[in-house]
């Protein structure tokens, strides 16, 4: 009898300790993110989402995630890498604590030697290069079509332009020269494939600096994501139709504001 009671007592103590440890465990939520990071369960790693103990966060090349715990400590994770819950605490952001005296005398020295950069004001607004204007797909567009009709406007004297297309997380770049201002490409599971992200750009140069040309991002939605987004947008379309707006205008606005352009 005593043995049974003792083993139960041990079991209860174990449960209490384990649960207490569970409660005492840190919780982290996503405070900032760059890119479209995903957890292994395909759960999107967006702002405000908690990093659960069994989650694995996959980050590709340019993706970054900043997490905050309950006491305000900041943790930064960057790709390419995969992180489990236990990895977070190892990535605490070290705050820059340069000596105050050093900062003060550096400040005095810069003032004394007049090394501070002069402030130059310029009354001007900036406009990007308008020689080539990319019309469709708009930047960050989400599409769900069997073919994509790329359209642009060529305001230069040159007849021949070059379309550059690359998969976002790949190295290969497809280059197509054309004398027109549009091109129809099919989602053929080869050049374009559902569920992937691409970048496209138009250049007047056949060999431009690939880092400097401005790409538009383009996402080809898979069936599931499309259905989810469509449901949300259908509600919007219905609401605005009831308010008397024409459907074509609503779809145009959804494409411009939500970048959802499958129609």
């Amino acid at each position: 009898m005593a043995r049974i009671l003792f083993s139960r007592l041990i079991f209860i103590i174990f449960c209490v300790v384990y649960t207490a440890e569970g409660f005492g465990q840190e919780s982290y939520y996503i405070y900032q993110k760059t890119g479209e990071p995903l957890f292994s369960s395909d759960k999107k790693a967006i702002r405000g989402v908690y990093f659960e103990t069994l989650d694995t966060l996959r980050l590709s090349d340019d993706e970054k995630v900043t997490l905050v715990n309950q006491t305000g400590e900041i943790f930064a994770l960057s790709g390419p890498n995969a992180y489990v819950f236990q990895d977070i605490s190892k990535n605490k952001v070290q705050l820059n604590q340069t000596s105050f005296t050093r900062k003060y005398f550096t400040y005095v020295w810069t003032q004394f030697t007049n090394r501070r950069k002069s402030k130059q004001e310029a009354g001007v607004v900036y406009r990007e290069d308008r020689t080539i204007i990319k019309h469709f797909p708009v930047d960050s567009a989400k599409l769900y079509q069997p073919s994509i009709f790329f359209r642009w406007e060529n305001n230069s004297e040159a007849d021949l332009v070059y379309l550059f297309l690359k998969q976002r997380d790949g190295d290969h770049i497809t280059k197509i020269g054309t004398a027109s201002d549009s091109m129809l490409l099919y989602v053929d599971n080869n050049l374009l494939k559902k569920g992937r992200q691409y970048e496209w750009a138009i250049s007047l140069e056949p060999f431009p600096s690939l880092k400097d040309i401005k790409y538009n991002t383009l996402t080809l939605l898979d069936d599931e994501t499309f259905q989810e987004l469509k449901k949300e947008m259908d509600v919007l379309i219905k609401t605005f139709t009831l308010l008397g707006y024409p459907e074509a205008k609503i779809k145009e606005a959804i494409c411009a504001d939500y970048k959802f352009c499958p129609y």
Binding site: V68, G72, I74
Partner: peptide
């Protein structure tokens, strides 16, 4: 004021309260 403007103050954790 230069204590703040020249960021001589120590960087603290975010106030999560």
């Amino acid at each position: 004021d230069i204590y703040y403007s020249e960021q001589m103050h120590p960087y603290l954790e975010m106030d999560s309260n």
